[in-house]
Design a protein around this nucleic acid. Structure first.
Length: 628
DNA sequence: CTAGGGTTAG
């Protein structure tokens, strides 16, 4: 491109001028003429102005550059800039470099950058940013190193660019080096630099470094707070996100929409209905304009905090909705076991001629799977290519789940065998889960081998397999697996259950005695269990992974964190009120049965969010239809 | 003349 321009430059300097350049609506049309009489009579560099060439200034060129719609447009303006000698004006040259980079014409940008003999800090910054934009980490750093080597001024434009580049590449080593450079230049306390560093450390999994840096900052602006709140949420420190949000407001910083979206997402992950209500009230109180993004985040939050109806209300109230909003709502119905509504929404979406994307289909297939809608799921799966979406491994995983749970293990296996896409551990895990439900030890063993090879460090797979063996009374095998886990230094992820009562969250683990009301809780649990047994509850000892007497197994089950949380909820909240419980893993099968009886006997509705979905226990049954 | 943080699944 630049070579062409040089050619053109020669052409122009030998008595040629641009005859017509019109950028109305930025569609460029121009001609070259030897005839200099007509020059500039109809030149319009901007949309609204026509200026004689002589009176064009830097600003006119810059706005013309900004209005370019393609790299071809840029080339034309570039030519004029050269002809009229405006390339000496650094703002113009920098803007050209910038716009080339925006159009990903990085070679043109670089050629021009090299050509500009006297560069300022903007030139350098724009060039570094250009490489970053095209994902060229290597050259981005190369230019940055030049800046450092030439001892040029490091500013709060360039530094954040390279820091973000190392964030995107998850290269904390480079990130740290840049941090060092920032320290030496005294730029490390700048808000832009610091926010970028915090984000980089957090994305690289070094949340403690991020926190430390954040705490040491002399001044924090809104964006830095937002980055830190999001970083905590990403690394699972959800309570900290909430605390930070409050601290920020206490320091007089008013959140904007992006900050609100960040905290809304943290709340969605947390699953606290109480906080969800507070947040939404706050948003209304502050009169925040709810656009598509915030609206969609709110749909997601309400749904993940257990209130699908509020999610739907939000969805209905939105003036503007995109695929993401629709997908979020479909997903919400999915994990609440409402496949019919999910399918309805999907069809409504098609009627509006909105194209579903890959995620829409994952959500929809998942909804079918959670409700046992096998035929509907198969139909949807076949429909995918019609909408330009090829099934990927996630879609296949939904299908394996759907067929597998429904007991159609052979079909699931056949699908796995015939699929042409690379299989991952989630897919195998899903099949293994189906083997467990339907007690197919043979198939499970075969699958487990591939699975443990593919992902030897995931304790969940070992637990699942030992579950299957335990179920079959194969205690030797169970012991083998346990040994294997020990050898590999793996531990079962500890299960926790949370319950909200009196605006406070209470957490329990198995056999927990740390709660101040521990004695009352165990007393209540004993009384409750007796009542449930009278109503027909029988402990399901299949969920105990130890080779011990039945009696001991029953005793172990009775200490599960789910039951402790439930017992606490019953004594800590008014009679008849709804209980909301969250578990970090899947709810145990015995506890699931226990909860069903409890909802009947105590006349309480209990909503449980587990790692996979929601269970709404009411009058002796669960919204999942025991299909989870 | 350059610039930051925000939405759906698993």
């Amino acid at each position: 491109m630049l070579r062409n321009l040089r050619g053109r430059f020669l052409l122009f300097s030998s008595n040629a001028t641009i005859n017509k350049v019109r950028f109305s609506n930025c569609s460029a049309a121009y001609a070259v003429s030897d005839d200099s009489h007509e020059q500039s009579s109809s030149v319009s560099l901007t949309d609204s102005r026509s200026l004689p060439e002589s009176s064009r200034d830097t600003g006119d060129y810059i706005s013309a550059i900004l209005s370019c719609k393609s790299v071809v447009d840029v080339g034309k303006i570039h030519a004029q800039v050269i002809v009229n000698g405006f390339l000496q004006e650094l703002p113009v040259a920098n803007k050209l470099i910038y716009i080339y980079a925006q159009f990903r014409a990085i070679a043109d940008a670089e050629a021009l950058f090299e050509e500009v003999s006297v560069k300022d800090s903007v030139s350098w910054s724009v060039m570094v940013g250009g490489f970053a934009k095209t994902g060229d980490f290597f050259n981005c750093l190369r230019v940055f190193r030049q800046i450092v080597r030439l001892s040029l001024n490091l500013d709060n434009y360039t530094l954040p660019i390279v820091i973000r580049a190392s964030r995107d590449k998850k290269d904390v080593v480079v990130g740290r080096l840049i941090h060092e450079v920032a320290l030496k230049s005294g730029m490390d306390l700048d808000c832009y630099v610091c926010a970028a560093l915090v984000g980089m450390y957090a994305k690289c999994g070094m949340i403690d470094d991020a926190c430390k840096l954040f705490d040491e900052m002399p001044k924090r602006d809104l964006v830095t707070w937002t980055v830190m709140i999001g970083a905590c949420a990403d690394s699972g420190r959800l309570d900290e996100s909430w605390v930070l949000f409050e601290r920020m407001r206490n320091e007089g910083i008013v959140p904007d929409r992006a900050a609100i979206v960040t905290i809304v997402n943290a709340c969605a992950k947390l699953g606290s209905l109480h906080k969800a209500v507070i947040l939404h009230d706050y948003i209304r109180l502050m009169n925040f304009p709810v656009g598509v993004i915030l609206g969609t985040a709110l749909i997601d939050m309400h749904a993940k905090c257990g209130n699908v109806d509020a999610a739907r209300e939000m969805f209905d109230s939105m003036k503007e909705r995109n695929v993401i909003s629709w997908s979020a709502m479909i997903a919400a119905y999915g994990y609440h076991g409402k496949a019919t509504q999910a399918l309805e929404l999907f069809h409504a979406m098609l009627e509006r001629r909105l194209s579903p994307n890959e995620i829409t289909f994952v959500s929809l297939l998942n909804a079918c799977s959670h409700a046992g809608f096998v035929e509907e799921g198969l139909e949807i799966f076949d429909l995918m290519p019609k909408y330009g979406t090829r099934p990927n491994v996630k879609h296949y995983t939904c299908m394996i789940d759907l067929l597998g749970r429904a007991g159609r293990l052979d079909e699931a296996r056949e699908m796995i065998e015939t699929m042409s896409i690379e299989k991952d551990e989630t897919l195998w895990g899903s099949f293994l889960g189906a083997c467990r439900i339907h007690k197919n030890v043979e198939m499970a063993e075969k699958v487990a081998i591939s699975l443990l090879e593919l992902q030897p460090q995931n304790p969940g797979h070992y637990i699942l397999l030992s579950n299957i063996y335990a179920n079959d009374g194969k205690w030797k095998e169970v012991a083998k697996i346990r040994n294997l886990m020990n050898q590999r230094g793996l531990k079962k992820v500890p299960g926790y259950t949370w319950i909200e009562a009196n605006n406070k969250t209470h957490r329990f683990k198995v056999g927990d005695r740390t709660h101040p009301k521990s004695k009352e809780i165990y007393d209540a649990l004993r009384v409750l269990t007796e009542k449930l047994e009278k109503a027909g509850y029988v402990p399901d000892t299949n969920f105990v992974l130890h080779d011990v007497d039945e009696e001991v197994k029953v005793g172990m089950l009775s200490l599960h964190s789910e039951k402790l949380a439930l017992a606490f909820g019953l004594i800590a909240t008014p009679e008849g009120s709804l209980l909301r419980i969250t578990k970090n893993l899947r709810v145990c099968g015995d506890c699931h049965g226990f909860f069903k009886f409890a909802s009947l006997v105590t006349r309480r509705e209990v909503v449980v969010r587990d790692a996979n979905r929601f269970h709404c226990f009411k009058e002796g049954s669960c919204s999942c239809g025991d299909y989870w």
